[in-house]
Design a protein around this nucleic acid. Structure first.
Length: 111
DNA sequence: GCTGTGACTTACG
DNA sequence: CCGTAAGCCACAG
């Protein structure tokens, strides 16, 4: 019985999985795309649960300032930064360089 | 059903 | 831009 299995988490994962390579987005952007711009925190929380999801590149999701706020939740100390740099994204002081240039808005890109 | 919490965001100075 | 304060919603206990 699926009942209310339509977790909003699944929606978050769906959007995060659609993040193209070498791009990043913010929790608020995802939340807004899901119609819950005021629940940006929940998006981050969903990422916490996303740890069980291998198809969820949570490292491509950062806060509004392009700061790797959730890097602390990744394995190691700078795994998140390593992953981003591996995609060609420069990260300095836990902050993405030219964040606006790498920002991926599901509202505009995903339509 | 209330309380606490959180990988956020916005507003104000 | 930076620091502080408040708002916000969903989930766990």
């Amino acid at each position: 019985m699926q009942s209310k299995n339509h977790n909003f988490f699944e929606k978050v994962y769906a959007v995060v999985r659609k993040i193209p390579y070498g791009r990043v987005t913010s929790y608020g952007a995802i939340a807004k795309y899901l119609g819950m711009a005021r629940s940006a925190r929940m998006v981050g929380w969903a990422m916490n649960n996303a740890h069980a999801m291998e198809d969820v590149p949570a490292h491509r999701v950062v806060n509004r300032k392009g700061l790797l706020t959730g890097k602390h939740h990744f394995e190691g100390t700078n795994l998140m930064q390593q992953l981003l740099e591996n995609e060609g994204i420069k990260v300095v002081d836990d902050q993405i360089v030219d964040f606006e240039n790498f920002f991926w808005d599901p509202m505009k890109e995903l339509v």
